[in-house]
């Protein structure tokens, strides 16, 4: 007899789940922000809402492709997304983005020239740079005494089993391309054939492939060298200065994450207000404080403190050779297959 209430409770719970939570207040002023996890500080969102009264629904993703999957499905309408350069390019090609009305985003003037009119958005019609970063080499200088200046210094027999790299076929192939003097976007069957023997030599030397947290293996001392995101390198450097960041002499990938407005955004005006808000130096400064990437906002950089600017992973000294990725279409499949084959053999 005692089971009856239990059953009723179960049915009630089920009914509650299906009705109670689906209704969504159609608030006139809110924006749906779809961005990388942890990339938009809560303080920035709260500040924006306090000032404009526009509520921000912050949904997150962990890779450009994850974002695309949900965006393309049409399950949800977003006002702002935060893709990397090659994804912006693909989205523009497919006419998935709206033009930004620059009159509504006057603070765009704070962005440095070298971050404007880049190949992925050549006329700067669709995107507002958020943060830039690079992929470079981290060296544990306690263990590796010789100078490391490029990819070939990393992938040597004597470093076998002491290397962590990003688990990302496109990145890995771009490094090999750089060593034969090709750019990261120079992906053709011929160039892939050319780098195949190089990769066949490199991959067996790698101990760990990790895109999510390559810092773990370095901090644990399980590896001494890494080719990782600059953000990871900055965290490592902050933990211990023995972890030095080197941008490879052969050239490196500079990524640039930007804000953009999907074509079917319900509230583009609110989205542009958000763009303008985050371009304020004092707001942009908060983002830098939270995440040690390269801030393209020159006015905000003036507000940064010495240690932040001195972190070589955030603001690399000298004049490194940096290139963005462009959308390479079907060649991505060939790259994937190449690296999978080589890994399977290793």
């Amino acid at each position: 007899m005692k089971r009856v209430p239990l059953f009723v409770a179960i049915v009630l719970a089920a009914a509650l789940a299906s009705t109670g939570c689906t209704k969504k207040a159609e608030a006139p002023n809110e924006i749906n922000l779809f961005a990388w996890s942890e990339y938009v500080p809560q303080g920035v969102i709260d500040g924006f809402t306090a000032e404009t009264g526009i509520r921000v629904n912050y949904e997150t993703y962990a890779s450009n492709e994850e974002m695309l999957a949900k965006l393309v499905s049409g399950a949800q309408k977003y006002d702002l997304i935060q893709p990397s350069e090659y994804t912006i390019e693909a989205l523009i090609k497919e006419q998935r983005l709206q033009l930004v009305d620059w009159a509504k985003v006057p603070n765009f003037k704070n962005i440095g020239q070298e971050f404007k009119n880049l190949p992925h958005d050549p006329r700067q019609l669709y995107s507002v740079p958020w943060m830039a970063g690079s992929v470079g080499i981290v060296v544990n200088t306690d263990k590796i005494k010789e100078p490391i200046t490029g990819y070939n210094d990393v992938f040597q027999e004597k470093h076998s089993g002491r290397i962590v790299v990003l688990d990302d076929p496109r990145e890995i192939v771009s490094w090999a391309l750089a060593t034969v003097g090709k750019g990261p976007n120079d992906v053709t069957p011929q160039t892939l054939e050319q780098v195949k023997p190089i990769l066949a030599r490199w991959l067996p030397l790698v101990k760990v492939y990790d895109s999510d947290s390559p810092k773990t293996a370095l901090l644990n001392g399980d590896v001494d060298l890494g080719i990782v995101w600059s953000g990871e390198a900055a965290l490592l450097y902050a933990e211990n200065e023995k972890f030095q960041y080197v941008l490879p002499a052969e050239g490196a990938h500079q990524f640039l994450d930007s804000l953009a407005i999907p074509i079917d955004a319900p509230n583009p005006i609110g989205a542009m207000a958000f763009m303008n808000y985050i371009l304020r130096p004092e707001v942009s400064r908060l983002i830098s404080a939270d995440f040690p990437y390269t801030n393209p906002n020159l006015e905000a950089r003036k507000l940064l403190e010495e240690p932040e600017l001195d972190n070589p992973a955030s603001y690399p000294p000298g004049n490194p050779k940096l290139t963005g990725f462009s959308d390479i279409g079907d060649s991505a499949v060939a790259i994937d297959k190449l690296v999978t084959d080589l890994k399977a053999k290793g």
Binding site: C21, K24, N32, L33, W36, S37, E38, N57, Y58, E59, T60, A62, A69, K70, Q76, D212, S213, K215, G231, L235, F291
Partner: peptide, 21 residues
Amino acid sequence: FTASAGTRTLPLEIFGRVKKG
């Protein structure tokens, strides 16, 4: 794939934080 902005679960939140440590 099936969540919305208002229904983030703990595993989603935790995975999002891996990048920052």
